[in-house]
Amino acid sequence: MSLITTYCHLSADICSVNGEIVAKRNIESDESWFRQIYKEQEFAYPKFNKMDILSQAGFLASELIKRANPRIATAYGDDEIALFFANHASSADTDMRFVHSYEHNGAPSPSLFVYTLPNIVLGEIAIANKWYGENMFAVLPKFAPEFFFNYGQILLSGSSKAILCGWLEILGNAINVFLFFVENNVENGTAFNHENLLKLSSFNL
């Protein structure tokens, strides 16, 4: 049976792992919320500063999940972990910044343009971990536990032994991120099914 072994939430002001709060946004700070988490958690990955907000969210949540679940780093081959993310807004937040660059800032910005695809976050996580596994980014009307369950099962019945899944919705100040790790052949965790996904997501659907 497949189990959800670790999960992470990011909202506009709270960051939690397995339901335990690990960081709260300091609204007095000049630094962005994700940069606050990055520093507080003492991550050292300079590329983080170049990433757009969607990739920063995916990077932070995946690193926090890895830290809470050390098996991830040791139990799997470099192509055995699939990445399967979805959201509704695609890369709209960065898309708008890119439009702003050519409509108001003089010229289209290449460094923004390369982030105007929702699947770039999968690439950033793959690069950070040297993971060569399967990738999928879907755009859905809303968080769909059944879709995650169905496609997650498909991935797990193929060459992937574990999956890092996530709903990664960011648009302006609205941040709704829920990443979770699903494994086979482990003892502790929550059964991977759509009821539990709905419960753990804490989304009001």
Binding site: N119, L122, N135, M136, F137, A138, L140, Y151, Q153, I154
Partner: peptide, 26 residues
């Protein structure tokens, strides 16, 4: 059923066909 959008840059099309195959096989 609500359509599903696969958005993975330039591999989207091949990935979408593969996904269709997997959904049907499963």
């Amino acid at each position: 059923n609500e359509p599903v959008i696969v958005s993975n840059a330039c591999i989207s099309g091949v990935l979408a066909i593969n996904t269709a195959q997997q959904f049907i096989q499963a």
